[in-house]
Design a protein around this nucleic acid. Sequence first.
DNA 1: CACTGACTGTTCACTATTGAACAGTCGTCA
DNA 2: TGACGACTGTTCAATAGTGAACAGTCAGTG
Lengths: 236, 236
Amino acid sequence: MPSTVRRDSVRDPRSPKKAKSRSSSFDLKSFLDSAGLGRKVARFAGKETIFSQGDPAKHVIYIQEGGVKLAVVSEVGKEAVVAILGPGDFFGEGCLAGQSTCMASATAVAPTTVLVIEKAVMTRALHEEHEFSDRFIAYMLERNLRVEADLIDQLFNSSEKRLARTLLLLARYGSPGHQATVLPKLSQEMLAEMIGTTRSRVNFFMNKFRRLGFIQYDSNHDLCINHSLLSVVLHD
Amino acid sequence: MPSTVRRDSVRDPRSPKKAKSRSSSFDLKSFLDSAGLGRKVARFAGKETIFSQGDPAKHVIYIQEGGVKLAVVSEVGKEAVVAILGPGDFFGEGCLAGQSTCMASATAVAPTTVLVIEKAVMTRALHEEHEFSDRFIAYMLERNLRVEADLIDQLFNSSEKRLARTLLLLARYGSPGHQATVLPKLSQEMLAEMIGTTRSRVNFFMNKFRRLGFIQYDSNHDLCINHSLLSVVLHD
DNA sequence: CACTGACTGTTCACTATTGAACAGTCGTCA
DNA sequence: TGACGACTGTTCAATAGTGAACAGTCAGTG
């Protein structure tokens, strides 16, 4: 069984407005369709594996609907969640940089539909289609900021703060801008893997946050977080 | 004074061959020159600041010669080194993703010459010059892998392993492929900031590694590391 | 030379984090 | 219904990591 380890990344705090910017004037789906890239649509049920760490890396995948978890497993069997992605996100793009195998496993976290794009086709499209290339660059820049923010979070903050931040980001992801937000079901085990700590630690802080009124939940009911109160944790 | 915190990233372990791939057929420098992008050349002495966290973000910068350290400072004054970049690397690219201020400070770690490219000019070049755009995409993909690897390292490994990994990466950077490598002078304070721990911890492990013969150094002489021995640390 | 600044070497009390174990609570499925 | 699996709640000894202090080395400099 996997045990520890982390990573949130769901929506970067440093690019606040971005939430909807992907649905700009350019219609990616139509472009992909017309370019013959969109033919390969694939659907996955929740918890279904899309690809596994070590598989040959041959495709870039674009999420149309649903959600995907990227995770890696260490030599000693610890699991870490590198990112949780949603509609509009790409993954598997490592193959464009010469990666021959997948560095992470991708698993659907909900019923998900994706476009599967051959590496060669993707490369050609990037060469030939300006707008597509622009969009992809913008996406990679954003993604980079997100990962960097996660890294910095990891460097600076204690696991208590990382948990608070992750919950806030997940909440923002769900429904932007409100004071209190309900989160989809998420096990403490998975939170631990996102944050890079142990389940017992997550449990400890979740109970602490609940005791202090920062969050609410009854066993197996949805989690509800109070943005402003929880934010306090981040600033000591 | 800053105290703790981390980050290596110098050359990703997952893209071994890449070291020289940037000097491919396409001559970036000539392109930039001919496109009028290369007019603004700037030079910095070692330790000179290129830009500071919080400055307005208006340029993408391309390193021609030398080395640059990207660091961020937390609210409580801790400093973390996000990356150490060399010739062929870009930085400041966050402004292309809509960042209005610099998220990090950039400091030359050696005498350095760079091309300073206006955000608008960069955007135009990405639109209009296929080959340039390709190159930039490739660069961002690689950079992304690097940061992700750093994040994963942080998630999985103890500070001892992170120190070993960072030393190995720095060594590979210096002179690829050999058994023992000499590293440029690097204070333990800075190593601590790259790794995300305290100087006392770094000192402790440096002495341990030296005692075990994994590395050698006399006060203020260059550090010499033994690749194969030090690699052992990574695998427990 | 004496002084300062920038480092390394070392120690130590405290705190944070891990890892593992065990009990309790659902939901579901034969 | 009862067994199972997937969770949460809780505890605790054992480590790992922090922060701050103080001494020692060395180079440069007025």
